[in-house]
Amino acid sequence: MKQNVFSDLEKVTEATFQKERKLLRPLLEAEARVQQQLARLEAQVQQSRKDSGSSEGYRVTGTDILWSSWESASRRQLNLELARIRAQKLNAMEALRRAFGRQQAVAKLSAAQTEAFKRARGKKLSSY
């Protein structure tokens, strides 16, 4: 097998690996964004609980029930979005692992082939 074949394969596997990395980045950013939104919601819930004890009108007007309903729906929606993003992330990470494995395999084959060419050339030169 010619050396340039492995060179071309190395370029293709590197390009595939980089493509898969680029596909993973937006998913990681989206996951972080949703986790921040959940953390912000949790902070709002804690603040609401702290403030509701000192505000009687909050309960009398039924605002506490509306708030609780909104908070529950928001949390559910964020958790669903987070689950969807994580499922996509798992698929993207698997594709990235495959691309990395292929890249490493081709690099090892190329290195072995280069070494074999060097040894063959060394034997050929030493026989003269």
Score class of each variant (00 low, 15 high):
T63M: 11
L24G: 00
L24K: 03
E31I: 07
I85H: 01
T63S: 09
L78A: 09
E81H: 07
A39V: 09
L66A: 12
K89H: 07
E29V: 11
I65Y: 09
E10K: 14
W67S: 10
E71H: 14
S72Y: 10
L38F: 09
V12L: 05
K50Y: 09
E10H: 09
K11H: 14
R84G: 03
R33Y: 07
A43Q: 10
K22S: 11
D64H: 15
L78Y: 11
L78H: 11
V45M: 05
A95Y: 08
Q36W: 03
A95N: 13
K89A: 10
A32Q: 03
G62K: 01
L90T: 12
Q44K: 12
Q36I: 07
E71Q: 14
E20F: 11
S68K: 14
P26G: 01
T13V: 14
Q47K: 11
R75Q: 04
I65G: 05
R86W: 04
R59H: 12
Q35N: 10
D51L: 15
A83S: 07
I85G: 01
A73E: 11
R25W: 04
E94L: 10
R76V: 08
P26H: 04
K19V: 12
I85E: 01
W70E: 10
A73P: 02
R40M: 03
Q35T: 06
L82A: 03
N79S: 07
L24V: 08
Y58V: 02
A95W: 06
K89Y: 05
Q77D: 13
Q88K: 06
D64K: 04
S68W: 05
E14P: 02
A43Y: 04
R76D: 06
A87C: 03
G62T: 02
V45W: 05
R21I: 13
E71P: 02
I65Q: 09
R76P: 00
E20I: 13
K22P: 00
T16P: 01
R86H: 04
T63V: 09
M93A: 13
R59C: 04
G62P: 01
G62L: 00
Q37S: 11
E29M: 08
Q77N: 10
E14W: 01
L27I: 00
E42K: 13
E10M: 15
S74W: 03
L27R: 02
V34C: 04
L82P: 02
M93I: 03
R75W: 02
L66K: 12
K50M: 06
